[in-house]
Design a protein around this nucleic acid. Structure first.
Lengths: 235, 235
DNA sequence: AAGTGGTCTAGACCACCGT
DNA sequence: CGGTGGTCTAGACCACTTC
């Protein structure tokens, strides 16, 4: 929140979420926003750009800026990295740690983590519950050179909070691959489903803001409760 | 290509794709690019921003701009709307039209298309083949007020080319929802799979750049060949 | 301290939408 | 035509990385 464009973005986001523009669906013009926030046009446009990128609004040249109605209810915003609690603010999310240990990575993981096959990595396997229902199995490998210490307490809670707040690392971006497959016996049992039923799978490679890879993970979602949303632009 | 930032973007994109920065992985500095292209810093930054958004590069403040290695091979870039031929430039893509007719929309579709239940819509059902293998079943509803005429010739070819080039409509953006489910008997048969096997499903609501909805569609992918990719940012 | 990207400003002109 | 967003410039200063 320390930059002007962030302040403008957050102010407008809040107004939109609270329904201020529900009737007209039209935002004030750039000119009006410049006067209202007492910043330059580029600063307004930077805030607007974020609102657009996040799918809150769309822009029509020569006409104006309009609020999109786009229900995020019960869906996971796939381009976010803020965690499930952001996507399900009205639901209870629990985690149970199934495994936590330091291992040598297999070839595939070493390749993805861009680390040596003799390096040490944390292996974490968790299951997450949405309002008590088994929702997702998450298998994560952390590069131990970057994340030197983990315990069950941290892993059960929010790993990302630990990484950003305690280790003071800056998370940057992630590559995601989405596919689907048949559940194996073990995963099916954990999710309360049957072997061979569908699973929505998201593979992640997560980078620090300096480009180092610190985390490779696979999330296996219960297909009955999972909807991922995103938006695309033609240009 | 009529804007300077587009020219800069395309030039840099081509250089990256052709592997010019493969060794160092570092792009020239903004200052160097300004001199090279003889444009202002903001224009360079606009081009850079697009490269970043598309996942070609990542930016490190105080350090530089670096090429990401991110294999798009055999994957569908989910935030693109350029069609499968962009995602599979080295494969043959065919379509077969299964159904094409004008109907009244059911309540659900009318709601999504934001049209009246008594309005007319085109209903199109196609199957698409990747190198001869059944790859995807696509069911699309077009608002006939916006797309007044369609025939099998157009639908078999590229609908979007017709819409943009012939009808001169501007496609803007799309909301996408990704989920997975069990195949029903009929879809399974078309895809060469068995009933109950997994299917990756993408629901789309497509908007013109003025915000009007012209197309609601559902794509049912053969899970054996389908990987969707995207990237996420933490900020 | 030097290099490099990030934020911010002020102002000009263009392109498109609606009346 | 006036209103509104889109592109582009020139320049100042800040923040972070690297040495």
């Amino acid at each position: 929140m320390r930059h002007k464009y962030e302040q403008v973005f957050h102010a407008l986001e809040e107004e939109i979420v609270k329904g201020k523009y529900e009737k007209t669906r039209k935002l004030p013009t750039e000119d009006e926003l410049m006067k209202q926030f007492e910043v330059s046009r580029n600063t307004i446009r930077k805030a607007i750009e974020i609102l657009d990128k996040k799918g809150y609004i769309y822009l029509v040249q020569g006409s104006g800026m309009f609020v999109r109605e786009f229900s995020r209810e019960g869906a996971i915003v796939v381009n976010n990295m803020k965690g499930l609690s952001r996507d399900f603010p009205n639901n209870t999310i629990n985690s149970k740690v199934l495994e936590l240990k330091v291992i040598n990575p297999c070839e595939d993981i070493a390749d993805k983590l861009k680390c040596d096959i003799n390096a040490k990595v944390y292996y974490v396997r968790r299951i997450r519950f949405l309002d008590g229902e088994p929702f997702c199995i998450e298998v994560t490998y952390f590069n131990k050179d970057i994340i030197p210490y983990l315990n069950e307490e941290i892993v059960k809670d929010s790993i990302y909070r630990y990484i950003t707040k305690d280790l003071k690392l800056n998370i940057g971006f992630a590559d995601k691959a989405i596919c689907c497959d048949k559940l194996n016996y073990e995963d099916a049992k954990l999710l309360g489903l049957n072997e061979g039923e569908p699973a929505l799978i998201v593979d992640n490679i997560v980078f620090l803001s300096n480009g180092l890879i610190f985390d490779v993970s696979k999330a296996i979602f219960n297909y009955k409760y999972t909807k991922l949303i995103t938006s695309a632009t033609y240009k």
